[in-house]
Amino acid sequence: MKIIEAENLKKQYNGFKAVDGVNFYIKRGEIFGLLGPNGAGKTTTINMLTGLGHITAGSVKLMGEDYTRNAIKAQALMGIVPDESNLYEELNGRENLLFCGALYGMDKKQREKRADLLLTQFGLQEAAGKPFKAYSKGMKRKLTIAAGLIHEPEILFLDEPTTGIDVAFARQIRNLIKDLHKKGTTIFLTTHYIEEAERLCERIAFIVKGKIVREGTVVELMQETQGENIIDFTLGGDFSAIQKDFQNSFPGFKIISGENNSVSIQSSTSFTLLPLVKFFEERNLPVFEAKIVRPSLEEVFVNVTGIELQKMQNDQSIRPGPGQKGSV
């Protein structure tokens, strides 16, 4: 069953098309990921879906009911976790949850029970009495997610849930998301961490410049890389000096990245290593390591969008995504 359905959704600010006719749906119980670089239209899309932004054109439905012009009824069924924690600094953790429960019209007893349950589930029971301003960034993010769940929503919107927090907390939050998914919570997740999307989401849409350029399950998207052969070389010298020579000698290869002593190359046909090794050695660049790279969602993303991963990460954050190659 489709929980959310967006049809030809558009958002325009003073002539600028922030979201340009996106179509997608989210099925009950799944984690749907919207993946794209900074400024792609992810947050604008979430804002339109949650009633925090007016819709220029198109429609959104929640469980079959159109709420394009009036989101109040739909908002009662949504939990929203923004990219930055937006709870009250002066209230403590428990008070924040109780207040958020009250905003959804929950009775006192009902919200107290739910707040205590969530504090335990999120490992925050010891910090429950501390003011929110005394929380670490990771704890703040956890409590913000708990606040999004206080009224047991039909769907949880998570906007960049691990951005700006340290690796350990990011891991905890990903595990929490997995647990919520196991319990049947429908999750709409936006992220710019490709591997995070790959690990957590069942279906993913790539959004670039306000348009969804590809959408499918992880398996469907990965099929696009079948037949792609990628190999990473670690060389005994700087590759950039011979890059032009390499491209002239091997026109069938695409250089994905080539910096200092390492180079990643790609070919859509199978090839043997020996001519390549010979080429490098003839130019005084001994090959120390040659590694076949398993095609990943990253390759699909780069192929489809033309956006270099490194650039996307640099735009967004200082922390690399989980298990991503290299460091930013």
């Binding site: 925090l52 109040i72 739909a74 937006n86 709870l87 600094e89 019209g105 606040a147």
Partner: peptide
């Protein structure tokens, strides 16, 4: 400024 007002705007009340 602290974005906590957003939380109120997202509440299901007019």
């Amino acid at each position: 400024k602290s974005r906590s007002f957003e939380r109120l705007l997202l509440a299901p009340i007019s």
